[in-house]
Amino acid sequence: EWCEALHSFTAETSDDLSFKRGDRIQILERLDSDWCRGRLQDREGIFPAVFVRPCP
């Protein structure tokens, strides 16, 4: 499952995944309604679900 970043997100901890608006992120797991775990290029981490939308 893939999503597109609606806003940029800067990691606040070593577990977070930083990304820029427009990045396509592979969703690996939905942790709960607020957080997802994903992969961007060679990095993995968690990020807020409200920062992304599903890719068509």
Rank of each mutant, 00 (worst) to 15 (best):
I27F: 03
D42A: 08
C3D: 03
A49V: 11
R30W: 14
D16A: 13
E12G: 13
S33L: 06
E44F: 01
D34K: 10
G22C: 02
Q26L: 12
D16F: 15
R53I: 06
I46W: 13
Q41I: 06
H7G: 09
R39D: 02
D34G: 14
R37M: 08
P54A: 10
T10S: 12
V52N: 05
S14L: 10
A5V: 02
D34A: 12
E4A: 06
C55R: 07
L17C: 00
R53A: 12
D42P: 01
L6N: 07
A49G: 10
L17T: 05
E4C: 07
V52F: 00
D42F: 03
V52S: 03
L28A: 03
K20D: 07
C3Y: 12
D32E: 10
E44P: 03
T10L: 05
D34M: 10
W35L: 13
H7F: 12
C36I: 15
C36G: 04
F51A: 13
L31G: 06
E29M: 05
R39L: 10
Q26P: 00
R37C: 06
R39W: 01
S14K: 14
G45W: 00
S33R: 09
R39N: 02
V52I: 08
G22F: 02
L28E: 02
D15I: 10
I25E: 01
R53E: 09
R39S: 08
F47V: 05
C3N: 09
D16P: 03
T13D: 13
F51Y: 15
P54C: 05
T10Y: 13
L40C: 12
L31T: 06
V52R: 01
K20M: 09
S18C: 06
A5F: 04
A5H: 05
T10W: 04
R43M: 07
V52M: 07
R39Y: 04
D34L: 08
G38E: 02
C55F: 13
T10C: 11
D32A: 07
K20T: 11
W35G: 01
E12Q: 15
S14M: 13
A5K: 00
A49M: 13
Q41N: 15
R39P: 00
F51C: 12
I46T: 13
L40V: 11
W2Q: 04
Q26F: 08
G38P: 00
I27W: 03
A5W: 02
A49C: 12
C55M: 14
P56S: 09
D23F: 00
E44S: 06
D15G: 11
F51G: 06
Q26D: 02
S8L: 02
S8R: 04
P48N: 09
I25S: 00
D15P: 03
I27P: 01
I27M: 07
R43T: 08
E4F: 08
A5C: 05
